[in-house]
Design a protein around this nucleic acid. Structure first.
Length: 905
RNA sequence: GGGCGGAUAGCUCAGCUGGUUAGAGCGCUUCGUUUACACCGAAGGGGUCGGGGGUUCAAGUCCCUCUCUGCCCACCA
């Protein structure tokens, strides 16, 4: 054995070294592919824009799955000769990053207000630098094959220009507007957030019922609410038009408790008669539903909360109270005035800020919005018409539903970290939307007729706005760059289904609007990674696993393979440490199969094929007459498995494809073929031994190609050590797939399959009879129709089943021994002559058990074949298969019964 | 309230357009250090595929229904 190859594969010895080398050589740039002549001119570019991770912190396994899947796709395509481009980058993540840095400042007794906008931004930039470094370090260690030369950040100058360009365009088209609307206000972050950034939590609360007195009457309308403090903001009372009790009261006025302010009673079918009292108060200034109802009836909005969600000065004595304090106080005062009726427990939906967790207060404020309706419909059509395919397709419905019910997107945020809104205001409030201050001032000069001082809008844009431009902004848009022309639209957008609305839908809308094209052809949605406790892995849950920790312990390849074989499209994946271990073991298994080859290849020449394209070069196979049954079998299996692999890949079955390669390599190549090869190889320098090494090299080499997108480091390390390969192929990633055209030798599959069954049956027998593992058994083995199969493979059978080859007899024509154990495997009968004490009772039981089992199967098949409906309606091949099986079973069963009779008698 | 998904071995999960006796990894039992690998090998045990109907020659797979469970969306105050 070559001394320099360790017995155990050590990822640490290869991964970092190879990763650095790949990157230094520029292998992950399509330009390099072209230089090497590895591109297939028929094939269009394959492009993936990487979903940019937030620079809020280090990555966890939830990100690693994204990296693994995308890297898999890109490597696979690259190997197949597509110009492959995967553009990496990170996202400034406005709210998320700002709040993390703010928290950090708070801990050191400071605040953003204390240090000011400029210094704060500086703080965030240095935070960004640190985490960007950590993130890309993690990704490099994972071995991802993106083009780092083209790396982007959402606040890069080019991307900022894309943001401003798009804003100006949409503004000029009237699709971006500014106005006072009810928005979700985060009192803690002091900013508006979009509908998507609000999460609703069900909580046990209280339903308060009280009296709304009718003006000029002693009567009242009972009203239920979960937020009595908002009565001070009521501007109407809604009743159902069909309500016999209150419907007729529409048009009259009721008096707001504690204020005696008259407000109108309006009739609206949004009222649910079966809930509460069948009437509800309308607070348009602090509730989304009420806002809409209020709009319908022309009710004014009253703001009763300030930016901290404390009751404001309009509430008189309650000013300054928090929402919770206000609720208690106001209800107490109402009670004192005899206005309350009852309180009862009630489950309420509390809106919380996704980012900071505090309760959102809907408030009227001046914000910027994007009109969605038209863009949403076009985005819907893109998927309906198949211009964009969503995988798995079940998500298309969710996507449609969201687009159909979309509301305008609030894109302004009262933050400091992000893209500043490119709008300037004159002294009279006139707005100038422009690419930069200079242009704004020039426009102002025209407008006012003299140079005028302008103020830029203080707000920044929602992070998802710049993310929405990602697929084209990273390629240089709005400039018509070469990259933009060549690599847009992208091929695949791969991401988690949790950001389908946040990001994917918006990219499609903005992409169609701004570039006139779909931004990508396929959306592949992977599942969420769950921690071992079953919860979604996230930084905030504190159950995040750092990929680096896993890599350090098991290697990047083991991590990748575990993630990739654990997924199926759209389904979540629960991380299990045992899977990392298992896959590390697999890497070691592959490594050792390779060491076995290396050892036996030493001193031999392994001829290579000479195809026109050097990337298709592989180990040449020996002349057909030199192939053993095992050789033919493994080649047939290779052909089958690789063919299946390509089909699975086309169906996005990455996990299934990985598993089938895993099974093939471990349980067929290693467990059977290598063991069979040892027998041939023992025969020293024969032609057959040479042939076997060639076959092994061929199969292993081809396996490395298919395995490479899963285990890039291991396969690269092995590829470089494979004997005889021309130096023109520097790396596995430049070895193309799809050069396996061999027909599947089904005879070899059947024949070797039978030998496997025989070996298994004998091993089973040995275990059952507790036969000394060292003892070489003497057997007589006959095969009714094909004795040659046994005689030709007696060496193999003897070795694998540990038989005494010289004393055993294979084929036909042997007298049955007097005392023996019998084994029947399909049409093969095996006698084990027995000279020692034989427990005939045990033997009887064993045979009886087998016989019973066979009877059961036979009965099923006979019934099936006796069923005329089956015979006439099932496909011919299914019927044939059952017929053949029935013959086999009959024969086998007959043999066993006969033997049982002998024993009885 | 709508929509989507899940329920398969002790655990975590595969099972594509219905077609051998339903699989994997881990765990479990027994055996084995045979010169690629103990991060190994061999042989086992373990499942009425959530319940109930239906379609079909044939159902884990398709349809209906129920139970449990997760997620998304939504103006029951």
């Amino acid at each position: 054995m070559s001394s320099e190859l360790s017995r155990v594969y050590d990822p640490k010895a290869h991964e970092e070294r190879l990763g650095a080398w790949w990157e230094a050589q520029g292998f992950f740039q399509p330009e390099t592919q072209a230089q090497l002549g590895q591109l297939d001119p028929e094939k269009p570019p394959f492009v993936i824009p990487m979903p940019p991770p937030n620079v809020t912190g280090a990555l966890h396994l939830g990100h690693a799955i994204m990296d693994a899947v995308e890297d898999f796709l890109v490597r696979a395509k690259r190997q197949q000769g597509y110009p492959a481009l995967w553009i990496p980058g990170t996202d400034h993540a406005g709210i998320a990053t700002q709040s993390i840095v703010e928290r950090f400042l708070e801990e050191s007794g400071s605040s953003r207000q204390a240090i000011g906008r400029a210094a704060f931004e500086q703080e965030v930039w240095s935070w960004k630098e640190e985490y960007h470094g950590r993130i890309s370090g993690q990704q490099r260690r994972l071995g991802i094959s993106c083009d780092w030369q083209r790396e982007r950040f959402t606040l890069d100058p080019n991307l900022s220009r894309a943001v401003r360009t798009s804003f100006v365009r949409l503004y000029e088209e009237g699709l971006i507007y500014r106005g006072d609307y009810l928005v979700n206000w985060s009192p803690k972050l002091q900013t508006a957030v979009s509908d998507l950034e609000v999460e609703y939590e069900e909580m046990e609360g209280t339903l308060y019922t009280f009296k709304y007195r009718l003006q000029g009457s002693d009567d009242y309308i009972p009203v239920a609410t979960t937020r009595p403090e908002t009565v001070l903001g009521d501007t109407g009372l809604a009743v159902h038009p069909d309500d016999e009790r209150y419907g007729p009261l529409a048009g009259r006025h009721v008096l707001v408790p504690l204020q005696d302010r008259p407000i109108p009673v309006v009739a609206d079918d949004a009222v649910d008669l079966s809930f509460g009292t069948g009437a509800f108060k309308i607070t348009p200034g602090h509730d989304h539903t009420d806002y809409e109802v209020g709009q319908r009836h022309g009710l004014p909005c009253l703001a009763i909360f300030d930016r901290n969600a404390h009751l404001n000065e309009t509430t008189g004595k309650f000013a300054g109270l928090s929402r919770e304090e206000g609720r208690v106080q106001i209800w107490a005062d109402m009670e004192a005035q005899g206005l309350t009726l009852k309180t009862e427990p009630h489950t309420v939906r509390v809106p919380r800020s996704q980012r900071s967790g505090e309760i959102i207060e809907p408030m009227i404020s001046t914000q910027w919005f994007v009109k969605m309706e038209e863009m949403a419909q076009r985005a819907k059509e893109a998927v309906e018409t198949g211009q964009i395919e969503i995988v798995p397709s079940s998500f298309a419905k969710v996507y449609f539903h969201w687009l159909d019910n979309i509301r305008d997107w609030c894109i302004s945020r009262q933050l400091w970290w992000g893209h500043r809104i490119p709008v300037w205001y004159g002294p009279d409030g006139h707005m100038f939307c422009a690419m930069d201050a200079e242009e704004a001032h020039a426009r102002a000069q025209c407008h006012y007729g003299a140079p005028t001082r302008l103020e830029q809008d203080a707000d920044v844009l929602d992070t998802w706005y710049s993310s929405g431009l990602w697929p084209f902004s990273i390629l240089g848009w709005p400039e018509q760059t070469e990259d933009y022309a060549r690599y847009y639209p992208a091929s695949v957008l791969e991401t988690g289904y949790d950001i389908l609305f946040f990001w994917v839908a918006r990219m499609i809308m903005l992409g169609l609007k701004l570039t006139g094209q779909v931004p990508f052809r396929t959306v592949y949605l992977h599942g969420l990674v769950r921690a071992e406790d079953g919860k979604k892995m996230s930084k905030s849950e504190d159950n995040a696993v750092d990929p680096l920790d896993v890599i350090l312990e098991y290697g990047a390849d083991a991590l990748r393979f575990a993630l990739l074989t654990g997924i199926s499209p759209g389904n979540d994946l629960t991380v299990q440490t045992s899977r990392f271990e298992n896959n590390r073991n697999f890497a070691n298994k592959v490594w050792n199969a390779f060491r076995f080859l290396r050892f036996h290849a030493e001193g031999r020449t392994l001829p290579l094929t000479q195809p026109e394209n050097v990337f298709l070069t592989t180990y040449a196979l020996p002349a057909p007459e030199l192939l053993t049954l095992a050789d033919r079998w493994i080649l047939a299996r290779l052909a089958k498995v690789t063919r299946d692999a390509e089909g699975l890949l086309a169906a996005w079955q990455i996990g299934e494809m990985g598993k089938s390669l895993y099974d093939f390599i471990w349980h067929e190549l290693c467990d059977w073929y290598v063991e069979a090869a040892k027998i041939t190889l023992r025969g020293a320098e024969s032609e057959k031994a040479q042939a076997t090494v060639q076959v092994l090299a061929h199969v292993l080499g081809q396996s490395m190609r298919y395995l490479h997108p899963y285990l890039p480091f291991l396969t690269e390390a092995i590829w470089q050590e494979l004997p005889s390969l021309p130096s023109v192929i520097p790396t596995i990633m430049l070895a193309r797939w799809g050069d396996i055209s061999a027909a599947v030798d089904s005879q070899a599959l059947t024949d070797f399959g039978l030998l496997q069954k025989i070996v298994r049956a004998i091993r089973n027998l040995r275990a059952e009879y507790k036969i000394d593992p060292g003892l070489r058994l003497k057997v007589q083995m006959t095969c009714q129709s094909r004795p040659a199969l046994l005689t030709a493979n007696q060496g193999l059978l003897a070795a694998l089943a540990r038989l005494d080859a010289s004393e055993s007899r294979f084929g036909l024509g042997w007298a049955k021994p007097d005392r023996c154990i019998t084994l029947t495997v399909e049409e093969v009968t095996i006698y084990f002559p027995w000279t020692g004490v034989l427990d005939m009772e045990a033997e009887k039981q064993r045979l009886q058990a087998q016989s019973d089992d066979l009877q059961g199967q036979l009965q099923r098949v006979r019934q099936l074949l006796a069923n005329t409906s089956f015979v006439s309606r099932a496909p011919a091949e299914v019927v044939t298969r059952e017929r053949e099986k029935s013959v086999k079973l009959e024969w086998e069963s007959h043999q066993i019964k006969q033997r049982l009779q002998e024993i009885q008698g």
